[in-house]
Design a protein around this nucleic acid. Structure first.
Lengths: 136, 136
DNA sequence: CTATCGTATACGAAGTTACGCATATGAACA
DNA sequence: TGTTCATATGCGTAACTTCGTATACGATAG
């Protein structure tokens, strides 16, 4: 009744909306495999703007408007990215008056970034030679 | 002259093809930022089939046909996924007669999977409640 | 209770990725 | 050389994600 509608810990999924969701253009099965969830997880990291946000939050708590000011993306778009990161449990929020503050919720998100950076260093040129955003 | 055309360590990029590539629907800039490369990296992990392949290879070397037999994907599709993983440096190949064997090239790829699995355990249900494949 | 600030959601459009199919390439063998 | 096996590439289509813009929502000040 108070949560921001998007990521409560376990969305209630009222039977009414459940039917609507089945018709929606989503296609993660009701009972996804661990592998499918892992893929979803990695995709959350697979966007430059979301990575930027995570990097900013790695240095401490920030409000939405502060994030918008530093990321090269509109406020609505940034908000959607934040919601995405929240679903995945990478960040949490705290509300102070009208402004909402985001911060890292899982130290392992930072480890992910560091591990990926370590893997990238050395063969960055090779990776860059394949000029797609992802996939191949 | 012998490499499998896809991921030589540093593709030659002849001036002729370079022009063609610029017209292609790719859009990773010529001089991508580290953040963009990281995003690309994570997207390589962001596919259930590719994750499946990595999991299989984590247990040891396999030929393409052996992988195709275990992954629920066609041979051409699997081959493309393998090429993708190779560009990113996650796997390498060895050729014996007619068959090509793939194996993990970077132990940190395995660490990535383990770290992601660790993050997922516990809030898997919450993540699954957001039924998109990625993004949000 | 009305106006306003900060944030979140809706919706159509555009770009990107995955898939299925057909086919090309390279290696060995007759 | 021609054929066959194992793998790789090309192309059109469908599906998914992202973006931009408009707008809705909750909280607070007047």
């Amino acid at each position: 009744m108070s949560t921001q509608t998007v990521p409560s810990t376990t969305p209630a999924s009222s039977p009414t909306t459940a039917t609507l969701l089945d018709a929606a253009p989503f296609r993660l099965p009701r009972q996804p495999t661990e592998r499918q969830l892992l893929a979803k997880y990695f995709r959350a990291f697979g966007d430059a703007t979301r990575l930027h946000i995570l990097e900013l939050l790695a240095d401490g708590e920030l409000s939405v408007s502060e994030i918008v000011a530093q990321v090269n993306s509109s406020q609505p778009r940034t908000s959607a990215h934040l919601a995405c990161l929240r679903w995945c449990g990478f960040v949490t929020t705290r509300r102070a008056h009208r402004t909402v503050y985001y911060r890292l919720a899982d130290e392992r998100a930072r480890e992910m970034l560091e591990l990926a950076r370590a893997m990238l260093s050395g063969n960055a040129e090779h990776v860059a030679a394949c000029r797609t955003l992802g996939g191949c």
